[in-house]
Amino acid sequence: MKALPLSMLAASALTSFLGQAAELDIKLTNLTQGLHFTPVLIAAHNSEHKLFNVAMPASTALQTMAEGGNLEPLINEATAASSDMVANPAEGLLAPTSSTMATLTTSDGNNYLSLTAMLLPTNDGFVGLDSWMIPSQAGTYTVYLNAYDAGTEANDERVVEGAGALDVLGIPAAPGGNAGSGASGVTSNENNTMVHIHPGNLGDDDLEAGISDLNNTVHRWLNPVAMLTVTVK
């Protein structure tokens, strides 16, 4: 083990007062009736290394997750920040009303919990938990999570193969198999380019044409979209 500089020793002494390592049992439930979650990333981190910042531009890593469900860049960044992580506990998609469980042991100083997973079918929507302070008191806590928009892509609501790539506009997939095709596109603008609460899918009632490939009675949602139950041991 390398000798730590004095300043870092002092910092670690301080953080040990602010928060001890914790052992967490985590359960995530997809509350929606018609949306799938792509692989989920859960990270315990310090106050600086968040997975996303609301009202700030999305990082490329966040954009990669929100537009195509690829967690790799976010995992790399969180690894570099010495965050504690659980990646892809559901081993794939988390279907509507399904739950997944995970356990996470956090290190001293990683006192905040964040979570992301892309919502399908959306252009760049994701379910998010931003820096929830892990309670020091043992117990079971319930947190409801909302849907965010990465602000990196216009919500045109056309299902386009390959649209998970950053330079391709569209929704990469509708895993429920209940989307249409041939839509002209709802919009080509994304006026708010910061991370914000998602305005929701619009959809339409024409699966062969219309402005959206999404079904307006199936692919809309109301917040919250997920329930997180955290047991601090």
Binding site: Q33, G34, T97, L222, V225
Partner: peptide, 10 residues
Amino acid sequence: NSVAMHPGVV
């Protein structure tokens, strides 16, 4: 055939 949150009426 599974209870979920309601997506709202259109």
